[in-house]
Amino acid sequence: MSNTFARRLLRWFDQHGRTDLPWQHPREAYRVWLSEVMLQQTQVATVVAYFERFVGALPTLRDLAAADEDTVLALWSGLGYYRRARFLHRAAQLCVAQHEGELPRELAALIALPGIGRSTAGAILAQAHGLRFPILDGNVKRVLTRYHGIHGDPGQAAVEKQLWLHAEAHTPSARVADYTQAIMDLGATVCVRSSPRCEACPLAADCVARRDDLTAQLPGRKATKKIPTRATVMLVLRDSHRRVLLERRGPQGVWSGLWSLPEATDPDGAWRLAQQHARIDDAQTLPPFTHVFSHYRLNIEPLLFDRATAQHGIADNPQLRWCSADELNALGLPAPVRTLLLQINDTH
C-alpha cells in the first residue's frame, strides 16, 4: 500500500479502532445503511440502542419495506429528524420494487434512492462490499480539513469539492471497509471538534493544522445566526380511562405525520379547542419547557384537562385517536411529547 496516509491510519485502527459496533456483525448492506442514516446528526453512543431495537423489529430490508409508517416512526422516535426515517422506509420499498429487495451495488443507483447521498452510498459500498469508494461525513471532513489545512466552511461547494478530491486520493484499494471505519473513528475519538488529542493521532506528523496551530480554527464554521423563539400550548386531554387524545400532524412542518398533542397559540385558544374535542371541567397548568430544533426554539406550555369526556365525532376522524399508555409505544411520537406523557402518567 503506497498511500502513507491510509497505511498509518490502518495501523492505528488495528490497535485503537472500533470493531464491536452492532452494525459490523454482520456488516451487511442493510445494517450499514441503517447505521449510516442513524448516525447523521446523532452520536454512536446514542445510536447503538436505537439500532438494536430497529433491527430487532425489522431485521431485513424487506421487513422495513413491508412495515407501516407508524411502526417505522415509533422505532425511530427519539432520534429526531424524522424525514430520515421516511426516506429509509420509501427507499426500502423502492428496493423491493426495483432491485429485487436488495440495496443496489452501483453508486448511481444508490444515490437515486431517497435520503442516500454520495457519502452514505460510498459507506455502504465500501463497508458492505469492500469496493473502493470514498466517504465524506462530518468526522472525515474534520480530519481532512485539518490534515490539509483547508480554510472555509466545509459545507460550501468549493471547499467540499477539495475535500472529495482528498478523500478519493487517500482511499486505498485494499482493506477499504476497515479504512472507512478508521477515518470515521479517528474523527470521532481523536480529531474531535474541541481539544483534539493530537498526541494520539497517527497523522499528526504531517498535519497542517497541528503544524500551524490551527486546530481551533479548522474546520471553518459557517456564520451563526440567532434562531427565533416560538410558543405553543399543548393540550393533554385525558379521559376517565387515562387515555390521552392524540392528533396526527399534517404533512408539512416539524414532526410531520407524527402523532402528537393538539396545540393552540395561547391558553384561551387551548380552552376553545379542548371544548371542541371533549367536555371538560378544569385544567391544570403543568411546568413549561423548551425544545430546541435546528432552526428555532419552541417554548411549550402543557395544559392537563383530566377526566375529559369525548365529544361525538372523534371516532370518525382518522387524524384523532384516544390512546392508552400501552398504545403509545406503538406510535411515532415526538420525543418531547413522549417524555411529557410519561411524566404525567408517573405524577398525575
Rank of each mutant, 00 (worst) to 15 (best):
A310F: 06
H89A: 07
S195H: 15
T285R: 13
T232K: 00
D137E: 12
D185T: 06
V233L: 04
R8S: 13
P251I: 06
R210P: 01
A182F: 09
V337F: 12
R242Q: 15
V143K: 02
S77I: 04
G130C: 09
G313K: 06
L110C: 09
P318N: 10
Q217P: 01
V159N: 05
L246K: 07
I227E: 03
A108Q: 14
T224M: 01
D20Q: 13
R338Q: 13
K141M: 12
L79M: 12
L64T: 02
P154F: 07
L258Q: 07
V72S: 00
D239I: 02
T224H: 11
L235P: 04
I116Q: 11
W76T: 01
D206C: 10
L9A: 13
C191T: 03
G117P: 03
L88M: 10
E106T: 13
E36P: 01
T224S: 05
E168D: 14
T4H: 14
G78Q: 01
L341D: 04
V143L: 06
G130R: 05
K226M: 02
V140T: 03
I116R: 01
E36H: 04
G220W: 09
L34H: 02
A85W: 01
G122S: 10
A205T: 11
V96T: 12
V37M: 06
V292W: 00
R197H: 15
L298G: 03
R86E: 12
K226Q: 08
R279Y: 04
L340P: 07
L113F: 10
L113P: 06
A325G: 00
D282A: 09
L21S: 08
N317R: 13
P154H: 07
L113N: 11
V337Y: 11
L10W: 06
W259G: 02
R7E: 15
Y30R: 07
E69I: 01
Q127F: 08
P104S: 10
R221D: 05
A66Q: 10
I280F: 05
M234I: 00
G220M: 08
L237P: 01
I344F: 09
R193Q: 15
F289P: 00
R193M: 12
R279Q: 12
L94K: 08
R242P: 05
Y81L: 01
A223L: 11
G250Q: 10
L165V: 08
V140W: 03
L328H: 11
Q162F: 00
S2Q: 15
F54L: 01
I111P: 08
L304R: 07
S256N: 15
A157V: 05
T145P: 03
A216Q: 14
P202L: 10
A330C: 07
L88V: 05
R338L: 05
W271H: 09
L21T: 03
Y30G: 07
